[in-house]
Design a protein around this nucleic acid. Structure first.
Length: 585
DNA sequence: GCGAACATGAATACATTA
DNA sequence: TAATGTATTCATGTTCGC
């Protein structure tokens, strides 16, 4: 039940926005930590008394308003409390609109007509110019120049004549650049509006914060060629825990997702973290400036796998699929325990690659160790451990180190046993396919947020499917796959996915393509109309030309295979545009 | 022709030391 | 702070045997 507003003064609005930003209030800000006052304010915001009481109880009577709002939003994410109406109000408040006008718009258009409410609010703010963001954003901080160029101003004027607000128009020009057509700018704004609507219940509270400093960095049009000269350095986190890992709440963090990046559809892109300098800057720039989430799978299983993920998924309320894998070699591969030398300090494996060590190497290790009946000399130990690390060898007998077999790799990567076995696949191909795949537990952790959002199933566009790491993750999360359109060049991998589909009695449709280039724009539109659109576009494009192990053609994103990343971008863009068109009609 | 086995460094990040 | 050392890396191309 939404109550009448009693805090619609500009001061109060500023206070709320400050709190949404999680920034410490300035000394001049009006901050009232009295729980009574806060209670009244939250009631005014439309939250139910029960929910507020519960949140205050959880956070303590001295908690700040933002903490309480976060908690309440968490309840709504969990579908346990909070009505959709309160979320609607909070959502538009977070966008910077006055509550009084929000309530009025809801009364006029009905709560379910989010788009009409948004339009009414935008129109209202256009007339009165009272959107908080417009007052807060310092447009002069663009480092291109201090004055708006006439062309941008013309675009803004035209957009405003089309009915968009000054804020929307300015933002669109800033984000897309000056050389973009009015039609494209209008599309950009519509995309953002639809995304906000769609994201109402799907993003965490932090992601819904107004980005007051959105223009305080250089905005490079996405279509610009990226060169090493203009790429901003993107450092890898240490420890590589992304936006959070299971059971380590100290690492749980929040992020600001650019408005243009918000779904629908959700997208999830993966590639190796240790790519040549500048590659991730380019990837991020082409995927709507979304900050990559770099995660090492050593926090999810007994093997390292440093990967970057660019996605627009919510990051609150992630959960791990069970049973959680063992995190040490000795626990994951208990048979090795008996033979593990005390002088080998490894407890986790390095990244699982596509090839394994030669028999010559394991033979050399055995000979080197058998040459010394007792403990080997330090130099020998060092050399053996170095090779064991290099080739991920484990101890399978006395003085006997061996590469992992395919079954063990399947287990470490989170695949069902024998996932890649059978169907005439050779061991070499099996190892290659596994070495190129996702670590399922890691990906599932990120995708887990989709489970409450798609209880009736999900339509997936799976690019560079490989052996189906994404599909296995969704299956293990028990998210029904209504449709999977899979694109995979390798016949062997396609067979593996098809086997998985049949073996697990999937009820949905599996539609297969060989080549991403076969998936023309027209074909994508046709497919989307056929299956009802895609909810998730997932894939990791080839890393051949990025990987450190490649001594021959590590040529970066322009390489023969790795340049297929741009196909991912093309396809994603078509899916997004078509999604918007389908929602309009 | 196919699969298995094998030899083939360098780019990069991070830690240590002077 | 710069130099040096250490660790890591979803690989490719060639040869050989069946």
């Amino acid at each position: 039940m939404v109550q009448d507003s009693s805090w619609n003064s500009d001061d109060d609005l500023d206070f709320e926005i400050d709190n949404f930003q999680s920034s410490p209030p300035s000394s001049s800000s009006h901050v009232d930590t009295s729980s009574d006052h806060m209670f009244a304010k939250l009631v005014d915001m439309g939250y139910s008394v029960d929910v507020i009481a519960r949140a205050i109880e959880e956070n303590g009577p001295n908690a700040e308003t933002c903490a309480i709002i976060d908690t309440i939003s968490t309840y709504s994410m969990n579908c346990e409390a909070s009505s959709s109406k309160t979320n609607t109000v909070a959502h538009f408040i977070a966008m910077g609109f006055h509550e009084e006008k929000i309530i009025k718009a809801i009364h006029e258009h009905g709560e379910e007509n989010m788009e009409q409410i948004a339009n009414a609010l935008l129109l209202s703010s256009e007339v009165s110019g009272d959107m908080a963001e417009e007052e807060d954003i310092d447009w002069s901080e663009s480092d291109d120049d201090d004055e708006k160029d006439p062309e941008s101003f013309d675009s803004c004027t035209q957009l405003r004549h089309m009915g968009f607000s000054a804020l929307e128009a300015s933002l669109a020009v800033q984000r897309c650049g000056d050389d973009v057509s009015i039609a494209d700018l209008a599309d950009f704004i519509c995309a953002a509006q639809i995304a906000r609507e769609f994201d109402e219940f799907h993003t965490d509270p932090e992601e819904q914060k107004p980005r007051q400093n959105i223009n305080k960095r250089r905005i490079v049009p996405r279509r610009d060629p990226i060169t090493s000269a203009n790429a901003q350095p993107l450092s890898l986190p240490n420890p590589m825990v992304g936006f959070g890992i299971p059971n380590e709440s100290v690492f749980i963090t929040h992020r600001s997702l650019p408005a243009i990046a918000r779904g629908p559809p959700y997208f999830y892109y993966e590639n190796i973290a240790n790519a040549p300098v500048g590659v991730w800057e380019t990837i991020s720039r082409h995927l709507y400036d979304v900050t990559p989430e770099f995660v090492d799978s050593k926090f999810f299983c007994a093997a390292a796998r440093k990967r970057g993920y660019v996605h627009n998924l919510p990051i609150s309320n992630r959960f791990q699929i069970q049973p959680a894998p063992k995190l040490t070699i000795q626990e994951a591969l208990p048979a090795t325990r008996r033979w593990w030398p005390k002088w080998d300090p490894r407890t986790q494996l390095n990244c699982i690659l596509t090839v394994h060590a030669s028999a010559q190497l394991t033979k050399w290790i055995r000979s080197a160790l058998e040459a010394h009946p007792g403990e080997p000399p330090e130099a020998t130990k060092r050399k053996v451990i170095e090779q064991c690390r290099r080739w991920n060898l484990v101890w399978v007998g006395k003085n006997k180190a061996a590469p992992l077999d395919a079954d063990e790799i399947e287990s470490l990567l989170g695949f069902p046993r024998n996932h890649t076995r059978g169907g005439g696949i050779s061991m070499t191909q099996r190892l290659k396919s596994l070495g190129n795949s996702f670590q399922v537990d890691t990906v599932a952790y990120h995708l887990s947020v989709l489970k409450p959002l798609f209880p009736d199933g999900i339509n997936v566009l799976s690019l560079f499917t490989g052996i189906g790491g994404g599909e296995v993750a969704l299956h293990r999360l028990q998210i029904p796959m209504r449709t999977v359109v899979s694109v995979e060049i390798s016949e062997v991998n396609r067979n593996i996915l098809r086997d998985f589909w049949e073996q697990t009695n999937q009820r949905g449709r599996l539609i297969e393509f060989e080549d991403v280039q076969e998936l023309t724009n027209e074909k994508i539109v046709e497919l989307m109309k056929r299956v009802g659109g895609f909810d998730l576009v997932i894939g990791g494009s080839p890393c051949n030309n990025l990987a450190g192990g490649n001594r021959v053609s590590r040529s970066g994103l322009e390489g023969e295979q790795s340049s297929l990343f741009f196909e991912y971008c093309r396809i994603l863009e078509v899916v997004r545009e078509t999604t918007m068109e389908m929602r309009r009609s």
